[in-house]
Structure formats: structure tokens, C-alpha cells
Simulated assay, not measured.
Amino acid sequence: MTESFRPERLEVVLSHRDSGGVVLVLYGELDGGTALKLEQAAAQLFAAEYPPEILLLDLSGLSFLSVAGARAVLAVHETAGMSRVRVVTGDRPAVREFLHATRFDAVLDCYRSRVGAIAAGSRAEFVSHVKTIWDAG
């Protein structure tokens, strides 16, 4: 078996969990050989009795991201149900520039830092903000 099919090249760490959200930090390489590891970790969170309101995927620890890896992130986003998925790209060109070049950043809710992603607020704050905008118009 070739190196590209060794899922241990990706580490998915649950670094924070509270009543509103979960932070999953990814380290290593996210590609076709490791994507299932991310998808399974997210599926477990979404299937829980109390799924997170926000799942923050911190990709800033990745050294490599392929199209298959980006599709896995998109799959997590699409299977989130009532959970919101936010992606932290960090300053790694391997992640930030790749998501921009492939236009995945136009579909995903991307932030350069965890602080920015957390500061984006909760779903209730978002709905309240949008309602204010709509009511003003």
C-alpha cells in the first residue's frame, strides 16, 4: 500500500467542547487517504444526542490539503444538519491559498483565526442581526 493511503498522516484532535460548540484541530495531511478520518469524527459529533451548534474546523495545523481533502471539509459542511461549520485557515498558504484558488472559500464559512471564527457569534446572534437588517429595509 502506498504512503497516500495511511490515515495516520492526519490527526484529528477535539481541543474544546462546550454547550455551544466544538473545536476540531487537524494536524498533518488532509487528502483522499485521510479524508474519511475527518468525516467520521464530524459524523460522530453530529449524531450525538446534543450536536454542537457550531463546529469549528481548525485547519491551521495542516501541512498539506488536496482537492479530496477540501471535498471532505465541504462534505462535513453539507452533512452538518442544524450545526454551523466554520473553518479556520490560519496563515498557512497550503490551506488558505488552496481554498481561495479552488473557490471553496466562497462556499465555506472561512476565518483566518479561531478568534475571528468565535467572534462571528452564535446562530441566534446571526438571526437577530439578519432580522434587524430585513426590518430596516
Rank of each mutant, 00 (worst) to 15 (best):
L74N: 14
A68I: 04
S4F: 11
A119R: 01
T132A: 12
L55P: 05
D105W: 03
L108S: 05
G28T: 15
V67F: 08
G33W: 07
E125L: 04
Q44C: 07
A72D: 09
P51Q: 09
V95D: 00
L65P: 06
R71E: 07
A48G: 11
V22Q: 03
V115R: 02
R17L: 07
A94W: 00
H100R: 04
T89W: 00
A119Y: 01
V12K: 06
I118T: 02
Y27D: 10
A72K: 13
Q44N: 15
T79A: 11
R112L: 04
G137Q: 06
A48D: 09
G28E: 12
E39P: 13
G20W: 01
E53F: 00
R71K: 14
G137N: 15
L30W: 09
L26Q: 10
A117T: 01
R6L: 08
L108M: 07
V13D: 14
A68H: 05
L55K: 09
L36K: 12
I118P: 00
P51W: 05
T102Q: 04
L14M: 13
A42R: 15
P51K: 07
L57V: 11
S83C: 10
L99I: 04
P52I: 07
L26M: 08
I133T: 09
G69C: 05
T132G: 10
R114Q: 12
A120L: 00
A117Q: 02
G121F: 00
G20D: 06
P7K: 15
A119G: 11
D91L: 05
E49W: 13
D105C: 09
E8D: 14
G20F: 03
F104K: 12
G20R: 09
E78D: 15
E49C: 03
A120F: 00
P51Y: 08
A75G: 11
G116A: 02
L38W: 08
R6A: 07
H129T: 08
G32E: 08
S122M: 01
G81N: 06
L74S: 15
F98T: 01
I54K: 10
M1W: 08
M82E: 14
S83K: 13
A41I: 10
W134I: 14
V115M: 02
E49D: 11
G90H: 01
G61P: 05
G32D: 14
F5E: 13
C110S: 11
A106N: 03
M1H: 13
C110D: 03
D18Y: 04
G121E: 01
H77I: 02
T2L: 13
E11T: 14
R17E: 07
S122K: 00
E53I: 00
L59C: 07
E39K: 13
P51D: 05
F46I: 15
R71D: 09
V22P: 04
K131W: 11
V95W: 00
V73Y: 05
S63F: 12
R112D: 10
